[in-house]
Each structure stands twice: as structure tokens, then as C-alpha cells.
């Protein structure tokens, strides 16, 4: 119903927008990037489309207003012999240019409200991850997956060492050489990324340990503050597997610029495998607890036995 209408109007505007901005879906920033990206989650297109629609509205109004101004500046110059007129108001015009903006605003508000309401609905999630901001790193704790609680899968995630060495004052190292494959990952890479499955409604509960941080991965379409003493909730549902990079978005002290976020979205089976490995690793060496096989994939089961002796320190960033 309403959301359908919203989606359709978004789609219509999206076609216009992608014509304008060549919107091939990329996830991470690229040189000379001019506009927001569509993102990779089911919801991330909401801000993307709102951005394009409101930008379009502003461009049109701008052309009209600035156009009128430039015409005035050419037609009514004293040097062209223009003589000033005496009038100084016009009720009809004033009513028109108060009403038309109101109508435009109502439309924008309607679209934005729909998008916001869907964002705020964290019910029906299939997975829960707790995110904690620290000066200056993130901690991820996996709480629950497909209705089953997960314990002891959690780790710190901080700036990767190559970026960290390069970013030191007078390091003499070249930021352009910090790469993973072809992609420059300077200041956008971590030692241990957050790994999540695609096609899963993931609920994030976000909090801060010391000062306020803000957890932001542009490809997911939102940021949310990580505030000490407060637990915030948001959700995402990533559609395409991939690596999505973001940064802390609330000033949090000297290394605020150096606490990136990396989310790796895996297919569901790959994720199940990964999760089982993690659970196995964190299990205490002697008795493998019953929690480990709880993970969905049976394929992971034999591996559990093998890795159970692996050093626990590995899980700590």
C-alpha cells in the first residue's frame, strides 16, 4: 500500500537519477565521486533516492530563482536606461510563492516519513550484533543468529597496521601504496572485519564504552551514534556479498579519523561456516560445549574439533 506507492515513486525518480548520475552500484568511495551511492542493503536506496529527488527539486527551484535574478540584472540596469518602478508588493504572487513550496515540502516529507518509518522498524530480525565504540576501535559481539543465542563470538576491530604505519606524522610512507588488491584501503581497512550474512535482517545494537562514536557504513545507508549509557538499535539487510567500508562519524578524540569499519558480507553458507569456526575457536579447549553445533551448517562440525585447540588470542584484535 503506502510503501508500495513510495517505492514506485522512488523507482521513477531513480530512473531519472541514474540517467543523471550514471548510478552503477559501487560501494566504496572512488576518486572524483560526485554523488551518494545507492548502497548495498535493502534500505540504503531510501536515502539515495531522497538525496536525488531533493537535489532535483533544489536544482529546478534554483534555476527558476537565479534565472529570474539574472534576467532582472540584465533588463533592469541603470546603464541600460531602466527607470525604477514604484510598486512594492503583489498579493497574488506572494500567495503563490508561499503555497508552491509548501506543496513541494509536503511531498518530500511524505517520502521521507515512509523511509524513516521502515528504518525504525527493527522487528523480525534474524540476527543480532552488538557494536561498541572505544577510543579508538570497535568491538563486535555476535549475540544471536537465526533465533539461537551465540556466546563468546566477539572481537576488537581496529585500523590495519599498514594504514597505521603510513598515517604516522612524517612516516615517509605513501598513502597511495596502501592497497588490498587493486583497491586503495588507506584508513579504510581493519585487522578484523565484521562478518555478516547477506539476505538476513540483522539488528545492530550500538553503544559506546568511553565517549560518543558513530557507526557508519555508507553502503548500509545510515549512521547511528554509539553513546555510553545508551543502547541504540538499527537494522540492515545486505543484498550483495562484498566488502563495505566506513568510518567513525562522531568526533571522539585524537584518533577519531583512524577507527574505520569494515563489513564483509558473505553468502549464508559461507557465513555459517565462518561462524562455526569462530565459535570453535572461542570454545574452551577441553570440553567442546553444545553451543558450537548450534550453528546452522553441519559442514562446519568436523572442523570444530580441529580448531578447538587454536589460540584464543587470535580472536582478540
Amino acid at each position: 500500500m503506502t510503501s508500495g506507492v513510495i517505492r514506485r515513486s522512488f523507482t521513477a525518480a531513480a530512473m531519472l537519477a541514474s540517467a543523471l548520475f550514471g548510478g552503477a552500484a559501487r560501494a566504496n568511495p572512488t576518486p572524483y565521486q560526485l554523488n551518494m551511492e545507492r548502497g548495498a542493503s535493502t534500505w540504503s536506496q531510501v536515502p539515495y533516492h531522497l538525496n536525488n529527488i531533493s537535489l532535483g527539486v533544489c536544482v529546478v527551484i534554483g534555476i527558476l530563482v537565479f534565472g529570474a535574478m539574472f534576467i532582472a540584472m540584465f533588463r533592469f540596469r541603470k546603464s541600460r536606461g531602466a527607470v525604477a518602478e514604484k510598486w512594492s508588493h503583489n498579493t497574488l504572487l506572494e500567495v503563490i510563492w508561499t503555497t508552491i513550496p509548501v506543496i513541494i515540502l509536503v511531498v518530500l516529507a511524505y517520502l521521507a516519513t515512509g523511509g524513516l518509518t521502515s528504518w525504525a522498524d527493527t522487528t523480525g530480525s534474524q540476527m543480532t550484533v552488538k557494536v561498541t565504540g572505544y577510543q579508538w576501535k570497535w568491538r563486535y559481539d555476535y549475540e544471536e543468529y537465526l533465533g539461537k543465542p551465540i556466546s563468546k563470538v566477539g572481537f576488537m576491530s581496529k585500523l590495519d597496521s599498514q594504514s597505521d604505519q603510513t598515517r604516522q606524522l612524517d612516516s615517509g610512507l605513501d598513502p597511495f601504496k596502501v592497497k588490498v588488491g587493486d583497491e586503495n584501503t588507506y584508513l579504510l581497512n581493519v585487522d578484523k572485519p565484521l562478518v555478516v550474512p547477506v539476505d538476513t535482517k540483522i539488528r545492530f545494537i550500538i553503544t559506546g564504552a568511553d565517549v560518543i562514536h558513530s557507526w557508519w557504513v555508507p553502503a548500509l545507508g545510515w549512521k547511528l551514534d554509539a553513546i555510553p549509557g545508551i543502547v541504540n538499535a538499527a537494522w540492515t539487510n545486505i543484498q550483495t556479498p562484498g566488502t563495505y567500508r566506513g568510518q567513525c562519524a562522531e568526533l571522539c578524540g585524537q584518533d577519531h579519523g583512524f577507527m574505520p569499519i569494515v563489513v564483509v558480507a558473505l553468502s549464508k553458507p559461507d557465513f555459517a561456516k565462518w561462524l562455526a569456526e569462530q565459535q570453535a575457536k572461542s570454545a574452551p579447549p577441553p570440553a567442546a560445549p553444545a553451543a558450537a553445533p548450534a550453528a546452522a551448517s553441519t559442514a562446519a562440525a568436523p572442523k570444530t574439533a580441529q580448531v578447538s585447540a587454536a589460540p584464543v588470542a587470535d580472536a582478540q584484535g
Partner: peptide, 8 residues
């Protein structure tokens, strides 16, 4: 500005 006699 409209209908004025402008200088700059």
C-alpha cells in the same frame, strides 16, 4: 530587483 534601476 525586478523593475528596478540597478547599479552594481
Amino acid at each position: 530587483m525586478w523593475g528596478g534601476s540597478m547599479t552594481f
